[in-house]
Design a protein around this nucleic acid. Structure first.
Length: 115
DNA sequence: ATCTTGACCTAAT
DNA sequence: CATTAGGCCAAGA
């Protein structure tokens, strides 16, 4: 058995994979769902490491303000925005339009924290 | 082993 | 409104 990633990262990946099409969520919400509401930075780190993993729609994860804080980590300058727009999400100035409508809260849509 | 940085969030000043 | 500080955990130098 090989444990390349910590349990924390795996949990993050699981949730990110479960983000529905055309929806987005925030780092903090994921962290909170896992049980560490103040470990949102780690979610970002998990995303940073997710570039080598497939099935990780990191473009669907933004910050709490609906700002594409991680767009600079994608290829090009606006790949993240294009991916989101291709899912029907409007973006203006790196900020998701009507963020509340497309926001997807794992704590609500998914069952309570279970491993 | 220590120190710094990081795709964050909240609260305080 | 801008800035600071605290918190969380991991990876790189």
């Amino acid at each position: 058995m090989k444990k390349v990633e910590r349990n924390f990262f795996e949990d993050v990946y699981k949730i990110v994979k479960k983000i529905p099409f055309g929806r987005v969520t925030s780092y903090g919400s994921i962290a909170k769902y896992i049980g560490s509401p103040q470990s949102s930075r780690m979610v970002g780190w998990a995303m940073n490491a997710s570039h080598k993993i497939q099935d990780i729609p990191a473009h669907r994860v933004v910050n709490k303000a609906g700002l594409l804080s991680g767009k600079h980590h994608f290829e090009g300058t606006n790949l993240m925005q294009q991916l989101l727009e291709s899912e029907g999400i409007e973006i203006n100035k790196n900020q998701i339009v009507d963020f509340s409508s497309v926001f997807w809260n794992p704590s609500i849509d998914l069952p309570p924290f279970k491993n």
